[in-house]
Amino acid sequence: MGDAAIERWSRQQSVLHRRDARAKIGALFAFLAAVSTTSPDSQIAFAGYALLLAAVIAAARLPFPGLLRRAALGLPFAAGFALLLWFSGERARALALLEKCYLSAAGALLLVATTPMPELLRALEILHLPRTVVLVIHFLYRYLFVISGQARRMRWAASSRGRLQFRSAAGALAVLFARSSARASGIYQAMLARGFSGQFPALAPPRWRAADAAFLIAAALASAAVRMAL
């Protein structure tokens, strides 16, 4: 998994990285809604969205190849349905499906590539996502790579001993569960010992500046303009 890339990207510096996470979330929704409601026949509008995204990627000083490759991760799934559409004679819709899927994925990727996860979760909490859910996502993201690493090592070990049988795979799952559960209680004890009250203490609350409002309005207007005009 090359997920260190997102962590690295999100900690760079740029105009876009400095914007408030709430502004970026709002801009993403405006963009996604515009893309989703665009008629499949207006190919030129999709080119317009691509140009918008390219401008934002350039402004965020993110590497094009890496970003574009990552956004394509969901395409195989879409390609199946696109083929179905293509062979039932709706070529424009087949093309539009792939384009919408790719543009939306690239847009979402831009949000996480310019916003560190803690900042993003803080913004979601301010936007009234239930606090339990925010905390669970926080811990999930934090321990995801640790436990995935453990699973990968177990898979290596098993495959070097020969083909994994169904029952031994179930055993591996159980051991992984036991280790995760032990780790969870260890984490919990350690956090209680340090005075965890069920809530992460917030550092300075995010400040909403004029530039954030300007960015949000510009992004929403640009998306709407492409949607209406092209």
């Binding site: 669970v136 999930l140 640790v146 559960s181 984490i187 919990y188």
Partner: peptide, 17 residues
């Protein structure tokens, strides 16, 4: 909540087996 988060990470990792 750490338990729930770690269980989420477990299911995530279990999908690799």
């Amino acid at each position: 909540v750490p338990l729930l988060g770690v269980m989420g990470a477990f299911v995530f990792a279990a999908q690799m087996i």
